[in-house]
């Protein structure tokens, strides 16, 4: 085969290969939007994180604002210390609260960050004080059954007048 045709085909092949690589990077993957962006880290302690994982998204108002960068068990407080890596573009008041939520009924778990009203913002190394643990399905069911049982026992004993609705935990 002539040299120029050969070069042309190989050139086409290499260009197609590189284009496929770029396609994979830009169209298929997210090119990691937080890898290059500067970020700051804050810590939040939870009684129970459920099945929250490292790299889980942190959302505020449904928008991904960062990712969980580290989870360790604190042997002094017996709580889970979660390190949040937040994008520097987003700032949150100091008294913001974090909650472990589940996307969908059985979906992956993420951290929801609800902004507070403080005039000062969270900075690198701060600690989020208000946290709410993951919802554990077993506890929820047992709580529900317990309430049902106590409701019915109250009703049957005739002291239904003292049972006020809406005081259930």
């Amino acid at each position: 085969m002539e040299r120029t045709t050969l070069d042309l085909w190989v050139g086409l092949f290499v260009v197609a290969g590189l284009a496929a690589l770029f396609g994979l990077a830009l169209k298929v993957s997210n090119m990691d939007s937080f890898a290059g962006a500067s970020s700051y880290q804050v810590v939040a302690s939870f009684d129970n994180i459920g099945s929250l994982k490292v790299q889980a998204p942190i959302k505020s108002a449904g928008v991904v604002v960062g990712r969980v960068s580290n989870i360790i068990f604190n042997n002094k407080t017996f709580e889970a210390d979660v390190t949040l890596k937040l994008n520097s573009r987003y700032v949150f008041p100091k008294d913001s609260s974090a909650e472990v939520m589940t996307s969908g009924l059985l979906g992956e778990q993420y951290l929801a960050l609800a902004p507070g009203g403080d005039s000062q913002n969270l900075v690198n190394g701060d600690k989020i004080k208000l946290t709410q643990s993951a919802m554990v399905l077993e506890n929820l069911i047992s709580q529900f059954l317990y309430n049902k049982a106590s409701d019915s026992s109250k009703n049957s004993s005739g002291s239904g007048a003292t049972a006020t609705p809406g005081t259930n935990p």
Binding site: F13, V14, A16, G17, L18, A19, A20, L21, G23, L24, K27, V28
Partner: peptide, 16 residues
């Protein structure tokens, strides 16, 4: 060695 990764990338992209 040069062809293999390019072919694999093309395979993945076409597969998607």
């Amino acid at each position: 060695v040069i062809s293999m990764p390019l072919l694999a990338a093309i395979f993945s992209m076409v597969g998607v």
